[in-house]
Amino acid sequence: MSGRHLLGVGDLGAEGIGEVLRLAETFEEVGRRPIPRVPALRGKTVVSTFFEESTRTRLSFELAAKRLSADLSTFSSASSSLKKGESLRDTVLTIEAMGVDAFVVRHACAGVPAQVAGWLSGEASVVNAGDGAHEHPTQALLDCYTLVRERRARFGAEPQRPLALAGLHVAIVGDIRHSRVARSCLLAFSALGASVTLVAPPTLLPPALEGWPVEVSHDLDALLPKCDVVYLLRLQNERMEGQFLPSPREYTATYGLTAERARLLGPSALVMHPGPVRRGVELAAEVADGPASLVTSQVASGVAVRMAVLYLLLGSGALVGA
């Protein structure tokens, strides 16, 4: 990783992603030790600044920081700081003034991690932990990591470098329009050589896709037999009732990976989901728990991948003990 920040997958490129994945492998081994901790970031201070609620991502980042022996603080504010009379910039600069090496930033509005990076006066790094419908780069990295690892474990597929997903056909299905995960994943998958097809009703696609490295389909059934990976997105409550979709029932019937529809998949096809899964809506329970599912494995990869990211951005010394 060359830059000081991780704001989006575009900051990395295939080489950068590969670097994270290789390092994550090392850190996954650390996680299996009796004392899963290395002193790599001792003396470094990481602040998780979550302006939008999150349980899983925050926990995963915080575990990653702790396993690297960084000092960790948490700033959590679901409410807008503007309402309290303090600008977002003031909030960030106040935290910076306390002496911080990395900000892990989540915000409901796209662009905030980039804005924070622009406001900082010192040398602190910014890691995007999800911004609006823009990007969620560590989710995409852990998905790439999971996919490479599982394909090696299951099929003995050794990844080519740097295009670790060369030749794979990935379908990303669901609410692409409002999904930061979809944006980061399509960029990461295609950077690693996969061909990506977005599958969604027109209401849940971004308004303009010119220049995106993707195909678009509205026919999941026709696509499934050709897919190596089906990546399902969570359908948010507010999209299900309202003007984007008639009903969750109709969504499941058209775009859900039902047990019946899953039979259209080839024998080596894999199923992914960033979680939490709405069982029975975008993904049938028996498929989520079935042999093709990588859902649990994805969650398990999160800490090691985020350790790798924090280490690459902040680490100065050698990986003592790793």
């Binding site: 700081s81 503007l82 600008s87 977002l88 003031d90 662009g111 905030v112 804005q115």
Partner: peptide
């Protein structure tokens, strides 16, 4: 004023 602009794009 600055505080009205030094925030997220949405706000």
């Amino acid at each position: 004023p600055p505080e009205a602009k030094e925030t997220s794009m949405c706000e």
